[in-house]
Design a protein around this nucleic acid. Structure first.
Length: 345
DNA sequence: AACTGTGTTGAT
DNA sequence: TCAACACAGTTG
């Protein structure tokens, strides 16, 4: 039910209606809190109580009703369904579908609303944003309802670093494995406790992750994407807490602690790729051992390619084209340790 | 208990 | 591809 604070800051969705809702006509029967066919709802609906159990179809493509009155969004890729999350608002679900459709199928995709056009600066930026992220990343953002927020952040970032490296291409993955260790921290009890935050030592924070003080970024924080040794992407909110005058990773940190079973005394290290991409990596190890700087956590060079425990080296590779598998950056939300989709370009 | 999203199927 | 339906698996 919670919504991202920056929700729908950009383009007005209503003006973008492209595919007219086909069945505006029969506004569907109100969904009573009842389930599909299980509950014998005694509602005196005047004789159509049989129908009253049926879920209302959505007028939007890719949107399906949920029993609780919410809406799910989904898109199909080949034979597989890719779930895009649930939404309280039907149109919001439809917008999620549109985002996925345009990332999965390009600008020609059929959308519920006006598709993104490169003629508007704003929408061109969004198209770029879409291409800069893998399908899995986009889906993850949609499911977590962080898409708008991350899009806006990327626009802000683009403002800052505009100029020199305008039209550069994506760095090939084999060039992304070179990483510099930025710093590491032995986590304290409070870092792994119920405070749900990691304090970044001030000197490291100011050196590697400077926040312009007084900027909105400093108060509300920014989102960081980190990749772990398994290739999974973690998103953390990074911000400055005035009260304690400290830099912290907040939202998202708790999940990392839980999933990695991080304990006080363990060491987390932060890395950055040396290429122009400036990808960031996070790694962890159990307490005490000194890190070997010459051996950064490498992915993509392992003999066996594993994705969340699933060996993907056997997946169909379609003609053995080397280009295939370029974008195998899967990182399904932690709940799904199954092969959701491996995208090839 | 409430909710999410997967398993499955039939229609297009 | 797609949505409808049922309901198992998760989450709060």
């Amino acid at each position: 039910m919670k919504r991202g604070c920056v929700e729908e800051v950009s383009s007005d969705p209503e003006k973008r209606l492209q595919v007219a809702p086909q069945h505006i006509v029969t506004e569907v029967l109100q969904r009573m809190g009842s389930g599909v066919s299980m509950v014998l709802d005694p509602t005196p609906e005047g004789g159509i109580k049989a129908e009253s159990r049926k879920l209302p179809s959505s007028r939007y493509k890719g949107v399906v009703p949920q029993l609780n009155g919410r809406w799910g969004a989904q898109i199909y890729e080949r034979t597989r369904r890719v779930w895009l999350g649930t939404f309280g608002d039907e149109a919001e679900a439809a917008r999620a579908y549109d985002v996925a459709a345009q990332r999965f199928r390009g600008q020609e995709a059929t959308t519920n609303f006006q598709p993104l056009s490169e003629t508007h600066d704003d929408e061109a930026a969004e198209l770029t944003f879409l291409l800069e992220h893998s399908k899995a990343e986009i889906v993850d953002m949609l499911r977590k309802h962080t898409y708008r927020e991350e899009l806006e952040q990327s626009k802000r970032d683009a403002q800052d670093g505009r100029g020199a490296i305008a039209g550069k291409r994506r760095t090939p993955s084999h060039l992304r494995s070179v990483r510099d260790l930025l710093f590491e921290k032995v986590v304290t009890p409070s870092d792994v406790g119920k405070l749900n935050r990691l304090v970044i030592p001030k000197h490291h924070a100011e050196k590697h992750f400077p926040l312009k003080s007084n900027s909105s970024m400093a108060c509300k924080g920014v989102l960081f994407n980190y990749e772990d040794a398994g290739g999974k992407v973690w998103r953390f909110r990074y911000s400055y807490w005035k009260s304690s005058q400290s830099y912290v990773l907040t939202k998202g940190w708790n999940r990392f602690v839980k999933e990695k079973n991080l304990k006080a005394g363990d060491v987390v290290s932060f890395w950055r790729s040396t290429g122009p991409e400036k990808r960031m990596y996070i790694d962890r190890r159990t307490g005490g051992v000194v890190c070997d700087r010459s051996a950064p956590p490498a992915i993509g060079q392992l003999p066996v390619v594993k994705l969340f425990g699933v060996d993907i080296s056997e997946l169909p590779a379609s003609g053995g084209d080397a280009k295939r598998g370029r974008e195998m950056e899967l990182f399904p939300p932690s709940q799904f340790f199954k092969r959701q989709f491996v995208e090839a370009l």
